[in-house]
Design a protein around this nucleic acid. Sequence first.
DNA 1: ATAGGCGCCTGCTGGC
DNA 2: TGCCAGCAGGCGCCTA
Length: 276
Amino acid sequence: MPELPEVETVVRDLRPHLTGCRIASVEVGKKKLRRPWSAAWNTLIVGQTIREVRRRGKWIVMALEPPQSLLAHLGMTGQLTVAPATEPRANHTHVVLGLDGAGQELRFRDSRRFGSMTLFPDDASLERFFETAKLGPEPFDLDAKSWPPRIATTKRNLKAVLLDQRVVSGVGNIYADEMLWLARLHPGRIARTLTRTEANRLRRVMVEVLTRAIERRGSTIRDYVGGSGLKGGYQEEFRVYGRTGKPCPRCRAAIVETRLAGRSSHYCPKCQPSGE
DNA sequence: ATAGGCGCCTGCTGGC
DNA sequence: TGCCAGCAGGCGCCTA
């Protein structure tokens, strides 16, 4: 579910609640997440303070003091929220960190359990994890010089390239479709056939779409909520995603749905010509 | 290098 | 009205 704007919203929501907070208790459910939680971690993190909360791609990093890092991924249906400890916990709540102070707790909820929460013993091991995964640059850090060459050699289509976290991190199925519509590029277009102008147009709309989506606190289709439990609003601004058969906001042609890179892909057949 | 398929899970829905 | 195959915002592994 959650792509960069949703994860960024969670991080911004959690930051004021978590920064400087001491972890007082840990409760972990029996069902296993994408990556297993080790029972040994409980004693390692109880008593530690959360130094900062940040995002890298679709990953959420909670850096502790002394240095250790909790790393969370929301998968498709993950939710990371702060709530009063007295409030009933929803079903599928798998990890709960009790926080010292205002009687609040951090809850990780995930019905499909494609998400994960893991502990890294120091900054270097977390960096190695990102390096091993070959996690690509943040979309906001791309520039006109480095981006076109990044996609200039691959024979893969644009949809597959945007979804590849090694090329650029944080983009998922929804925002890839929205970006390609805005850039007037067909999702099936082979990346290396793009001119430098087209590649940079894509780079600019990536930032544009993600920035606007963050302003709207991400998109909620079904499960997504931010760190305070609020839903997103960007789904109201979708131009192509989930709008199969409906008119293109630019030219009124009917939006088409197809399958690319194993994912549903939505585009305007008139505004986003395949380039033959 | 890359495409395609599967598996991991639960919950919802569209089409019969 | 009711049922269930198929699909969902992700990702990693395998094969060809």
